[in-house]
Amino acid sequence: MAYYILKRLLAMIPTLLGVAVLIFVLLRIVPGDVVEARYLGQGSQFQSQELMDLERKKLGLDQPLWTQFTTWMAGLARLDFGLSMWTGSPITEEIKLRFALSLQLAIMASIFAQLLAIPLGILAALKQDTWVDYAVRVFSIAGLAMPSFWLGILMILTMLIVFKWVPPMVFTPLWVNPWENLAQLIWPALAVGYRYSAVGTRMMRSAMLEVLREDYIRTARAKGLWLKLILARHALKNAILPVLTVMSLEFAFLLGGLVVTEQVFNLNGLGMLFVEAIARRDYTLTQALVMLVATFFLIVNFVVDIAYAWLDPRIRYR
């Protein structure tokens, strides 16, 4: 097991290197840079090539691409992400500011999704082809079909029209004012969690259906075991593996991928930062965010693989 863990950890290095090369090259292919985004888009009558050249020099954009890449890589090796090209602030500071909100939202959406997905999936499997199953399926398909940002817009409009109320505009940490914090984050968590739960529900239902047809479940039932016990001890543990994979990847996605939902609810999270970094051609910040999300995906995948062995003793890693 230790050998396997070491092998997996080492395998992350070339994967991350590949991601680094890809994002570095892709950003440079796209037209425009941070200096143009800063000085050419405001409709000003006066433009100074001298100023733009000066800014490019300050940011190191006048250096050959290879030099820019090696400088960035050397920084990464020291876990130094550098400065944002747009604000000039340390990238770690920019990310730290938004991380708490994104993490809390991802956790809240995941909890909500799992609270819905697991019982509904089990229920639908147990009551296969009854009205209960159909109702759960319609509910989950609706969740898949409805983009979470659209659901978010509907929620805001409903709150505005019916209750003449909108969520707070500024993030307050949970430990500062829990009520204010929840009043802001509960809505996006519900909107995102619903879509996220739909994926889980469908996966849970199909995995559970498969497991429920297994011989050992039939044997357990024939022995007269209590249904709840069969489900909890035998069926769920086996059916949950694929659900765990899907839900974990969704969780990793939630950390940086809630771009539109964050815009709709005006949340100062990593998704919004990502979009703004790309729109401003903030190379250093975009690169750091991509590396962060890629690392997060790799870690989540790794943890899920390890959890597999813990949940299913038949699985052994060498």
């Binding site: 817009i153 805001i156 909108v166 707070p168 505009m169 609810f265 005006n266």
Partner: peptide
């Protein structure tokens, strides 16, 4: 208090919700 909001729908909602 100046609140940064990119999305115009969110800005309109803020005015409409009297925030």
């Amino acid at each position: 208090r100046a609140v940064f909001m990119r999305e115009s729908a969110a800005q309109v909602a803020a005015i409409r919700g009297e925030r």
